[in-house]
């Protein structure tokens, strides 16, 4: 029984690590623009697709052959393949490249959506960017479906062995990497100059502007960081579940948004806490109560938390100003 509980906790923490990474994207944007970025779940999806694309370019013989046939100057990839797939160092390097390129490209995609879909609406009523984001989400999902494929298998890169309690290399990798990223982001926002600028912007945009902070770059940066973290989670999801699909972002998106609210939206540590909590609740609910009702249990807990703490776990309750 003990074994079983710990195994379920491991499942929950792994899932929670991914939720936390995605939830950060929601909470960052919300903190600064007070906007629920519905397109964020598609950043997660895009990250998975781009990551798989890069991975296949580096390690898949058939894909390389097809690409080189069209773009001969990429022929060097074919010779690098044995290095990437053959040795441990090559493998680590390949993972770094995959995550790096995917995070940067997805971050740029996030900045693009901000520039063209949200910035023109910055002074519009609050629900406008929400609907615009929804439009982007629909667009990106259909673009992936129509222009790429509805689902593509993701090769398993790490060895499958169980260290006990269901602790496998992939789970260690996901948990450790997400904890590192969460720690780095937390330090980044609380100690660096740019982080300060971000906090200042979220407190009072106009005042921050008057203090010489370039609001537009801060917002653009926010829209880079969030999607980049989402992309990392997207590749995790691909590696962990073994597939990327055009609609893979939908449920993790809802759950992570829930996690962000659970922790107190706009609050970075709240998003992390909420993400891990939600993952664990889901795993335990599924393992001990009913796999069919696991989401019901998660949402019921969320509603109860919000009724007793209307600002989320780490957020302060709303102050009414009279």
């Amino acid at each position: 029984m003990f074994n079983y509980i710990v195994s379920q906790l491991v499942n929950g923490v792994t899932l929670g690590g991914m939720y936390a990474l995605i939830a950060l994207g929601y909470t960052l944007v919300y903190g600064i623009l007070l906007m629920i970025n519905f397109a964020h779940s598609e950043m997660f999806m895009s990250g998975g697709y781009i990551g798989l694309g890069v991975l296949n370019l580096l390690s898949n013989k058939a894909v390389q052959a097809a690409v080189v046939a069209r773009l001969p100057f990429l022929a060097f990839l074919q010779s690098a393949r044995t290095f990437f797939t053959g040795s441990t160092i090559g493998m680590i390097l390949m993972l770094l490249i995959v995550f790096g390129i995917s995070a940067v490209l997805t971050g740029c995609l996030g900045m693009l959506t901000e520039r063209f879909a949200y910035r023109p609406l910055r002074n519009a009523p609050r629900l406008c960017p929400l609907i615009s984001a929804l439009g982007i989400s629909i667009f990106l999902q259909n673009a992936a479906l129509l222009w790429i494929d509805n689902s593509i298998p993701f090769p398993s890169l790490l060895p499958t062995r169980d260290f006990g309690f269901g602790i496998t290399p992939i789970r260690i990798f996901i948990i450790v990497t997400s904890l590192i990223l969460l720690f780095v982001l937390d330090r980044f926002v609380s100690t660096t100059r740019i982080g300060k600028a971000m906090r200042a912007t979220s407190q009072d945009q106009d005042a921050a502007g008057l203090m010489g902070i370039d609001i537009n770059s801060v917002i653009a940066l926010t829209f880079f960081i969030g999607p980049a973290l989402g992309a990392v989670a997207g590749i995790f999801s691909g590696m962990y579940y073994g597939v990327v699909t055009y609609n893979m972002g939908f449920f993790p998106g809802i759950k992570s948004f829930t996690a962000a609210v659970l922790g107190g939206i706009g609050n970075l540590r709240g998003a992390m806490l909420g993400g891990f909590m939600l993952g664990i609740i889901e795993a335990l609910a599924s393992g001990f109560i009913s796999s069919g009702y696991k989401d019901v249990i998660a949402f019921v807990i969320l509603i109860i938390v919000l009724i007793f703490r209307p600002g989320g776990l780490l957020g302060e309750s709303v102050v009414e100003k009279v």
Binding site: Y4, Q8, L15, N247, F251, E282, A283, S286, K294, D295
Partner: peptide
């Protein structure tokens, strides 16, 4: 057990089956 449509996380179900 039952799984939800369009969801891809079966890890908790798998752990249960394993036990």
């Amino acid at each position: 057990q039952s799984t939800q449509q369009k969801q891809n996380d079966f890890t908790a179900v798998v752990t249960k089956i394993k036990s």
